[in-house]
Each structure stands twice: as structure tokens, then as C-alpha cells.
Design a binder for these strands. Structure first.
Length: 520
RNA sequence: GGCCCCAUGGACUAGUGGUUAGGUCACCACCCUUUCAAGGUGGUAGCACGGGUUCAAAUCCCGUUGGGGUCACCA
């Protein structure tokens, strides 16, 4: 995809600041960014805040922050309001007004004084007749072929009657263009309504402002969601009115809900921040979203990409046409891949603050004389990294590395305890107390040689020990777990545990009595 | 409803006239194993339908069906 020499690729992401960035927006931003970077071009962000009613305070800032956190950084920003930031349409009102005037003079646009009621009535009537609702041209000024005398129009203007400016769409013109992902697309201008360009509050509509800005900002490629495809004719007509060359366009397939409708809140989380909050990392989200509609093709079986790798490999030709369901199953898998690949140092950086906060709340068993906190954390991470999907699970799933278990998982106890379990366990505790070499290796030998003469299998002890130490029936290799936790804590927990979990049959109440004890 | 877009297993997709239709997630089984994972091996499951064109169609054309988008002084 070569561009003419001297014609720099410039792509843009143009969100409206009405809330948090959602994943569809993130993907649009990402594709724009990737394409620009791939082509050695510029990526810019433009805030489209022309709807004063829907504008949300601070949304622009949060949008930018989320993008930045994901590694998508605009190439241009400029000083306004005392800060550097992206282009903002509400600060460019004069420009739109000026171009609107030009269209008015060229008679490509006209004043429209119709009231909301009139428009509504007209719409209803047309719908009733089975027609596509469109502006009724009978209301046009006389000189534009309508019925409103010029004098009346001028009078209303002078009197300050509210008005909007509409573009005059020519009749029956075929509008064709080449979409970079969809190929040739054709519309008939007869199906295009006289779009409002300037609203009565003096703000431009999206269609008008974005065309002007794309031209003024020398945007070479407009990459946006498919929901904009049907407004292409309006935009193309505007370019023609101004005599400007339109940018190349690519309409991206939509991101879908599980029911295949356009991705929306209601059916689950859509804000990027929601996913971040749940523990998904920006890298995984970017990776995931990049693959929703794009792939390398040619038998490439790769699934994990960093942002830099995407920058290198992305291309618009490899963007698909069909909508893609945003299904988080695969995102979870990706997150796990990233955790496995992440450096220990980086994980410690994230979970150490979490851990310290936890340690504030409860007293810990961590023997800081024996080992430093970071070393200890490092060992825990090493043991747990294959078993967690999120960084925060390092804390929640391995709390027993830091605190005594608060109880013992009932199901596991029932499954692993038999009549003489506690008896054998008691003897084994004494052995552990005497064990100097508390390494995983030696612990394994010790346990095996302890159990063999008693006619038991290692599992006979392994499971109960695990449960008394951790409270749960799953976790890393027992021997390694014991080594990390350390002898003192191990022995203490076992001694305490053996009192709390009586062997079956010993207590009168059987299972229910045991339950009571366990919940103690 | 008008206009526009789309159509490979449950999800994401490879495939551009000749393939036993490939990969990833999920799912199932087995192996490994002290649990849970991870890993390994294998498996269930797909070209929406109907016509053409062609020696040959998932692939090209037409139609049907299905899905989606859009028809605001919202973007």
C-alpha cells in the first residue's frame, strides 16, 4: 500500500467525550494507530465534543489516559487551556462557521427554520406512507426550489428565529467510492437526507465538523466503525462541495454482543476500564482486540502479539469484513499467557503494594528473619504463576503463604481423612520438627520413607498436610510449598490443625460435628 | 419498511478454483502427576440454502434465507 511521494499517512481517532473508552473504540484507535505507525505516518486524536448535551466532564481526559495506558500515544498535541492536549472541536467553532458560510453562498446549503414539531409530523407521515423519512423540500427557500420566499427567510434570520443549516443533497446522483476493507460501495443520493450541518446552538454536527477537520488536519486515511458506512455519501458530497480530495476510507467490522448485535453495555462490560479493573492487562486487551477483525493470514498460527509486533505486521488488507463477537474466554487465556511471560520483577512491582496492604490488615506468618519480603514474594510467584490467571490472584489464591488458613475446605477434608489419618499425621509432625534440611527435595524423601514402612502411600499424608497448611485442596507442589513457608510455620499449623480436624468416627456427631469444628 | 454491509465448527479465524477444509479459545478423553494448573497426545464440531459458470467451487456469478448497521439539531 504505497502512497504518492510527499503524501504522508495521517490517521486519526476521533472519539466523542461521552463516557469511558469502550473496547470497540479502543480497537478503532488501535487500528488507526497501527496503520499510521506501519506506514511511518502520524496518529492524531481529535475530541469531537460538538454535542453539548451529551458531553461528560473529564471524559476526554479519561479517554486519553486509557489510550496511553494501552500504549497508544498521539503524535501531535498542542497547547490549549493551559495544557497540552489533542485537537478539540468545540475550540474550532469559528472555522466551521466560516466553511458553513461558504456552502450557503455556493447554495450547497440552506437555512432551515422548521420546528421540531413540523419535522416530527413530516416524519410520521412519511413513515405511514412507507417512505424513508427525509426532510421535506417544500420548506426550502424559493431560490433553492422550495416555497419559502426569500424575504421571509431573511426576515426570520433577522428576527433571530432559531434555525439550522442543512446541506442540499443533489437528486439522483450515484455516489461511488472504494472502501479499503469493503471494496467498491455505491449509494444513490436520492436515499440521502438533507443532513443538518450547523445546529441551532451554533455547533456543527459530526458530519460537518469531521469532514472539515479531516481536510484541515490533512488526514489521509479515515478508519472507523462500520456504523459510519451509510453516512459516507453525505461526507463525500461535502468534499465535492468544497472541491477537496476525500481521504481514503476503511470501515471496520463491528464488535458484537454474544447475540450478534452491536456491542453495547447492557450485555456485560464494555468499558476498557472495567476490564482493567477486573485485572486484565492493557497488553492482553490490546492483543485480544487486535485479533478481532485482523490476522496475519498465510497460515500464520500466531496468537500472541506485543504492540510493537502489531505495529510491524498490521495491514488494512488483512482486516476482515464480518463483525466479531467480543467473547472474553479467549481474553482470559491471553491474560494467562501474559502472566506466564511477564518478568518476576514486573509482577512483584504490581502485587507488592497489594500484599503490603493485606499485611496491614492481618498479622502474618512470614518469617522476615529467614528471608526478605521480595525473596519470599519471588518464590511464591514462582510456585503460583502457572496457576493464576490474574496478577491479583497471586494474593487471593496464595494467602496461606502469608496467613494461617482461616478454615479447611470441607469437601477436601471429607475426601482425604480416614480413621488413622490424625494418628499418622501426629507422628509425622514429630519427624518434621526434627528435620533440619527443609528443602523440597529432602522433604519428599522424608515423607516417602516415613510413609513406606507404615504401609501407606505418599498421598495418604500429602493431602492432609496440604489441607492443614493451606486450607484448600489445590495449589503448587506440596514439598515446594512447605519449603517456602518454612518449618516453624509448617509445624505450628499442623499441630493446630490436627486438633481442629478430628478423625472421622471419633466425635459423636460425625460429619456435622466436624463441620462445627472446621467452621470454628 | 428504504438504503447499505456481511455470511467457514459454540467464539476468533486461515483459506482467493483442485486441501483428508488448517490454527487458536472453549469443550471432551487419555498421558504426566500428591491436588490444582501447566505441558503432551488425541477427539467432538464448520463452508446457511438454491441455482448457475467450470473438467473441478468454501473459493467466481445470480437468487433466497439469515444476521447486522443506518435512516436525529447523537456521535
Amino acid at each position: 500500500m504505497q502512497t504518492a511521494p510527499g503524501q504522508r499517512v495521517r490517521a486519526r481517532f476521533a472519539p466523542s467525550p461521552t463516557g469511558f473508552l469502550h473496547v470497540g473504540g479502543l480497537r478503532t484507535a488501535l487500528y488507526n494507530y497501527l496503520y499510521a505507525k506501519k506506514m511511518n505516518g502520524d496518529f492524531i486524536v481529535r475530541i469531537e465534543d460538538t454535542d453539548q448535551a451529551r458531553k461528560v466532564e473529564g471524559a476526554d481526559k479519561s479517554l486519553l489516559e486509557t489510550l496511553e495506558m494501552s500504549g497508544i500515544v498521539p503524535d501531535e498535541s498542542f497547547m490549549h487551556g493551559g495544557n497540552f492536549g489533542p485537537y478539540v472541536q468545540s475550540e474550532r467553532l469559528g472555522i466551521y462557521k466560516q466553511y458553513c458560510q461558504q456552502l450557503l453562498e455556493q447554495k450547497n446549503a440552506y437555512y432551515c427554520f422548521s420546528t421540531a414539531e413540523e419535522l416530527e409530523e413530516n416524519r410520521k407521515l412519511q413513515m405511514k406512507q412507507g417512505l424513508q423519512p427525509k426532510y421535506n423540500r417544500k420548506w426550502l427557500p424559493e431560490e433553492m426550489g422550495g416555497t419559502m420566499p426569500e424575504s421571509q427567510s431573511r426576515k426570520k434570520l433577522e428576527e433571530g428565529v432559531p434555525y439550522v443549516v442543512r446541506m442540499k443533497v443533489p437528486d439522483y446522483v450515484s455516489i461511488m467510492f472504494e472502501d479499503m476493507v469493503r471494496g467498491p460501495v455505491e449509494f444513490d443520493s436520492a436515499t440521502v437526507d438533507d443532513q443538518v450541518l450547523m445546529k441551532s446552538d451554533g455547533f456543527p454536527t459530526y458530519h460537518f465538523a469531521s469532514v472539515i477537520d479531516d481536510h484541515l488536519m490533512e488526514i489521509s486515511h479515515v478508519i472507523r466503525g462500520e456504523e459510519w458506512l451509510s453516512s459516507m455519501p453525505k461526507h463525500l458530497l461535502l468534499y465535492e462541495f468544497f472541491g477537496w480530495e476525500p481521504p481514503k476510507v476503511a470501515h471496520l467490522p463491528l464488535l458484537l454482543n454474544p447475540d450478534r448485535s452491536k456491542l453495547s453495555k447492557r450485555q456485560g462490560d464494555v468499558a476498557v476500564e472495567d476490564f482493567i479493573g477486573k485485572g486484565y492487562s492493557p497488553e492482553a486487551i490490546i492483543n485480544f482486540v487486535a485479533l478481532l477483525g485482523w490476522n496475519e493470514g498465510e497460515g500464520c498460527e500466531r496468537e500472541v502479539y506485543s504492540l510493537d509486533e502489531l505495529k510491524e505486521r498490521f495491514s488494512l488488507q488483512r482486516v476482515g469484513k464480518a463483525g466479531a463477537v467480543f467473547n472474553i474466554e479467549k481474553l482470559g487465556w491471553l491474560e494467562k499467557q501474559y502472566i506466564k511471560a511477564r518478568s518476576q520483577k514486573k509482577i512483584i512491582g504490581v502485587i507488592k503494594p497489594l500484599l503490603l496492604a493485606e499485611l496491614e490488615k492481618k498479622s502474618t506468618d512470614m518469617d522476615t528473619a529467614r528471608i526478605t519480603r521480595d525473596e519470599y514474594l519471588g518464590q511464591v510467584i514462582e510456585l503460583m504463576r502457572e496457576r493464576v490467571s490474574f496478577e491479583h490472584e497471586f494474593i487471593s489464591f496464595s494467602s496461606y503463604f502469608f496467613f494461617d488458613p482461616e478454615g479447611y475446605e470441607e469437601k477436601a477434608v471429607q475426601k482425604r481423612w480416614v480413621a488413622d489419618t490424625n494418628e499418622v499425621l501426629g507422628e509425622f509432625i514429630s519427624v518434621l520438627e526434627e528435620t533440619v534440611d527443609f528443602s523440597a527435595n529432602n522433604l519428599e524423601t522424608t515423607l516417602r520413607s516415613f510413609v513406606a514402612p507404615r504401609g501407606k502411600k505418599p498421598a495418604f499424608l500429602i493431602h492432609p498436610v496440604r489441607i492443614l497448611i493451606s486450607g484448600v485442596g489445590f495449589g503448587p507442589s506440596l514439598y515446594h510449598m512447605l519449603e517456602v513457608i518454612g518449618r516453624e510455620t509448617v509445624v505450628r499449623r499442623l499441630k493446630k490443625g490436627i486438633e481442629r480436624v478430628p478423625a472421622p468416627g471419633r466425635s459423636e456427631g460425625g460429619i456435622s460435628a466436624r463441620r462445627a469444628v472446621i467452621r470454628d
